Simulated assay, not measured.
Amino acid sequence: METTTQALSLVDEAPATESFRDAALDGLRKSQKQIPSKFLYDERGSKLFDQICELEEYYPTRTEIGIMRDNVEDMVQSIGPQARLLELGSGSSQKTRILLDHLDDLAVYVPVDISRSHLVEAAEALAEAYPHIPVQPLCADYTTSFDLPEPPQPVHRTVAYYPGSTVGNFRPEEAQRFLSRLAEAVAPNGGLLIGVDLKKDVAVMEAAYNDAAGVTAAFNKNLLRRMNRELNATFDLDRFEHESIWNEEKGCVESFLRSREAQTVTVAGHSFSFAKGERIHTEYSYKYTLEDFAELVGAAGFSVETVWTDDQSYFSVQYCTVDG
């Protein structure tokens, strides 16, 4: 049986390299050096993260996939017919395929990712696997405002899909602002299908970000490699080490790059001194109780309609609707 290959048209709203330069320089000038976690996801970083998702210690992916497989019919019913599915941070799209296998009447699928090459690769694979579903890849920084491409056919509602508990990478006040923009983007009559990692035993959470094989360390240190390549930086990766620890007060796992020794590094022509043990903050991974997350999305204009969890209550997938 012949299938027609889609001619994909990439909508490119990706930020220029200059924004990475500005973020790196601004962050390294702070008393607590920091670089936003979104810059971890260049092409190599995205592929390393896909490897992390396969690790034994990294429970979120397999747990979320199990929840999706067990409850996909209910999720599809919540999304409804003729919807536009807007996936934020398309990644490898493994979880998306579980949805697309059951969304027979989807109007259009719009994967959004900041990594252009990774996005195109994933979109092409999905377009080939699902020739009956229009695919409109959008290269953009979804943490900021962006314009959706005109759909190829009328849509009944827009549903944002945000898997992987990536919402945990935002501080709570940032998460609320992000979710508020998302509520405006999917209104009226829209929804949000979102993965939310739940609070649990500290040892389980910390192990997920300190795997024995060192893949998470390579993922974190790839940020230094990226600065060397794109910003003419002089980081010696061997002189930094990966660190991830649970912060009980904040309710999150925090990731850092720790300098093994006193040193000076140049980035985009600017020099930065590091004391021995000084750290660059690279990522937050906030965990929530169901009550805390309901309060967060409620403040952003959503109402939690349905919650699906695993037997151990490690993780949740939640469907939220726009208020009003």
Score class of each variant (00 low, 15 high):
E2H: 09
L8P: 11
L10A: 06
E13G: 13
T17L: 11
S19Q: 05
F20T: 03
D26T: 09
R29N: 03
R29T: 06
K33N: 07
Q34R: 13
I35Y: 06
F39E: 06
D50T: 15
C53M: 08
C53W: 00
E54H: 14
L55G: 00
Y58T: 00
P60T: 03
R62E: 10
E64K: 04
Q77K: 14
Q77A: 08
Q77T: 09
G80E: 09
R84G: 08
L85M: 12
S93Y: 11
T96L: 10
I98P: 03
L100Q: 13
D101T: 07
D101N: 08
L103S: 11
D104N: 14
D104V: 07
L106I: 10
A107C: 09
S117V: 13
L119A: 14
A122F: 15
H132F: 14
P137S: 12
A140R: 10
D141M: 06
D141V: 13
T144S: 12
P152I: 08
V155N: 10
R157A: 13
V159P: 07
P163T: 12
P163R: 08
G164I: 10
T166P: 03
G168E: 02
N169S: 04
E173W: 10
Q176L: 07
S180D: 07
L182Q: 08
E184N: 12
V186N: 05
P188S: 08
P188C: 10
L193N: 05
L198F: 00
D201C: 00
E206N: 09
D211G: 06
D211F: 12
D211V: 15
T216S: 05
N228E: 07
N228R: 01
A233F: 09
A233K: 03
D236W: 02
F240Q: 00
H242Y: 00
E249H: 13
L257H: 01
R258C: 01
E261I: 04
Q263Y: 08
V265G: 00
T266H: 04
V267A: 15
A268V: 00
G269W: 13
G269C: 10
A275I: 07
A275H: 12
E283Y: 04
E291P: 07
E291D: 15
E291G: 03
F293R: 00
E295G: 09
E295F: 09
V297R: 01
G298Y: 05
G298F: 11
A300P: 01
F302T: 01
S303N: 12
E305F: 02
T306L: 09
T306Y: 05
D310N: 12
F315S: 04
T321P: 03
T321F: 02
T321Y: 02
V322M: 02
D323K: 14
G324E: 11
G324P: 05
